[in-house]
Design a protein around this nucleic acid. Structure first.
Lengths: 339, 339
DNA sequence: TCCGTCGATGTAATCGATTCCACGAGCGCC
DNA sequence: GGCGCTCGTGGAATCGATTACATCGACGGA
């Protein structure tokens, strides 16, 4: 592969001049410029990004470590992150942590070894020493969706409180009183927050959230299935199950189906995170939709701001309730928008 | 960030010795080794992958350019690719072409600039000059799922012919005679092949595939919707629509639903590519399942073989039919396995 | 005419690793 | 006792770019 030296030789100038042309430095004669460009053309020269990065200490690359690529929510997030990054001149390397702290650390480590310019993380756990060190060492970093409390890093996420209130109001109006939740891992902020938001919303209607109605899931389909089976085995099973993410809702659907029961007649179902398929499931699933694309874009902007020396701010966007039929029929569909 | 020089100074040896310890070269004294390792520990030293790559001309990175990350099939493919690559000591950079040749070229170019060791591509089109040049120039490369004819590059894909024959047999048994297909882009091999396989299977039963029953899609949901509406507007609409991928099936479902019609009573539906949600759609969708994970792993193995100087062979794995209810009820569910 | 300035260019240092080569010490063998 | 090997080690070149600094010529003003 042709190097800058070959180009210099071909154009009859020094490598410095070639470099100047390529980085359009002002003081290059028109003559030299055209000769260099011609040489670049004939040799099919492309600068070696590795060499350039070594010298400039910039890779123009962002690392994105997400909890689970197979989760459509994160897939969409990854897509919007890549789009915005590309628009700003950055590439993205995605690491899939698969909800496993060890894998998350593996990816953070290799990304740091590659000297990425900044890191976008949706932490799987409460924060490994590795990540805390990186943050403290000044690696530009932004948390997206989930975050680690007590770390001085901007957080880009959506606030589901309003939407969860709307959801509980919707459920209450339909007559449901025994509401259960399939929670995410307590080590994640979203895992805890969604339970809290749910509990608070229930309190508004004078309802409680007994421990038996809190199932411990891990954001994966299988755990949703398992927890739902546990609910169905209770002496007094809940009337509604609220899954804290879309995969656990899928698992819940599996469990209900395996018993030959029906949604919403035997058990109503709602989910956090809306996905396209929810329109076509049997029945269509009521869900809380996050502004996923906007979150991804905002996260990239915040990270690039940090990288380029600007402040880089936290962003919180509201989620909203999308009512479908999985919680029972309703006469007047009210979709209060949250603020 | 500490460099190899700092480690050398701390350990009281030369950088050469540090490098030897790190790459466990045999001739290093036990004493020097322990001193170096201690220095590495106290400084928290991590070798700079950029510098290493510049010198060794290896990045231990694979590029994966896929047609559409939002398509669950490709998401799963990407996941298995990353897993196998990690097991073999490689990282993966994913580029999402979004079915756009220009984006595909963009990613191929940046990946080559980064001097990735090898490229895994599922081409969006018939092959840009850029990609053909790269293949000719000797960049280790493997096509996965789709390929470009006439290029000397291993292809890892699944053969759907057997499964499509099974599907048509299934449809014929259910009494369907007017079968239509939503095709993928003619520029892709899978786009063409699936239509051909379908046509051949129909021929076995003495059925034809009239042009009016071939809708031109682009593997995206919206095109599935549009084509299905066209089918429904025909004087004699088809009884079955076979979507060449899962997203177009989603679009077809949207279209049927928008007209207030029902699957399979008004129009039966089948799809190429099986996804988890197909179990829970209304009705559950009959689909042709590819061994996606195995494809991804085989592709990585073939690519790494090429990179490391071994032959690197093409692989073709059979797909299989998964019968559900979207084509009508059947008495004895026959799922012939293909060979 | 001379000097200072500015624009264009080249030389060489540099980034952080790997690796070839040289060198010295120790050891075995004749 | 000397010769030659092997082993451990360090110095320095190298990968392909960027960039500080030096140089040189032209040009303008006094």
């Amino acid at each position: 592969m042709a190097s800058i030296k070959d180009v210099a030789a071909e154009a009859g100038v020094s490598v410095a001049t070639v470099s100047r042309v390529l980085n359009d430095h002002p003081s290059v004669s028109a003559d030299a410029r055209t000769r260099v460009l011609a040489a670049v053309e004939t040799l099919g020269y492309r600068p070696n990004a590795v060499a350039r990065s070594l010298r400039t200490d910039q890779t123009h690359t962002l690392g994105l470590v997400i909890s689970d690529v197979m989760n459509p929510y994160f897939t969409e997030l990854a897509r919007s992150v890549e789009e915005e990054a590309r628009a700003l001149g950055y590439s993205v390397i995605i690491g899939n942590a698969d909800e496993r702290p060890d894998l998350q650390d593996h990816h953070v480590r290799t990304l740091l070894d590659r000297r990425i310019d900044g890191l976008l993380v949706s932490p799987t756990d409460g924060g490994s020493p590795l990540m805390l060190d990186a943050a403290r060492a000044g690696t530009p970093m932004v948390f997206v969706d989930r975050w680690i409390p007590g770390v001085d890093v901007p957080v880009v996420r959506s606030d589901g409180r309003g939407a969860v209130r709307d959801l509980v109001a919707h459920l209450h109006r339909l007559g449901h009183r025994r509401l259960a939740i399939i929670a995410g891992p307590a080590a994640t902020t979203t895992g805890r927050e969604r339970v809290e938001a749910f509990r608070e919303a229930l309190a508004v209607f004078g309802l409680e959230l007994p421990d038996a109605y809190i199932g411990q899931g891990d954001f994966q389909a299988e755990s949703g299935r398992r927890v739902t089976e546990g609910f169905l085995d209770l002496a007094e099973p809940p009337e509604v199950v609220f899954a804290a993410d879309n995969l656990m809702a899928l698992g819940a659907l599996d469990a209900v189906r395996a018993r030959g029961l029906r949604v919403p007649d035997d058990l109503a179902l709602a989910a956090f995170d809306d996905i396209r398929w929810f329109v076509h499931t049997d029945p269509p699933i009521t869900a809380i939709a996050q502004p996923t694309g906007e979150l991804g874009r905002a996260a990239v902007r915040a990270l690039v701001d940090r990288i380029e020396g600007r402040p880089g701010e936290s962003v919180t966007l509201p989620a909203r309730l999308v009512v479908r039929r999985s919680c029972g029929e309703h006469s007047t569909p009210v979709q209060r928008s949250t603020t």
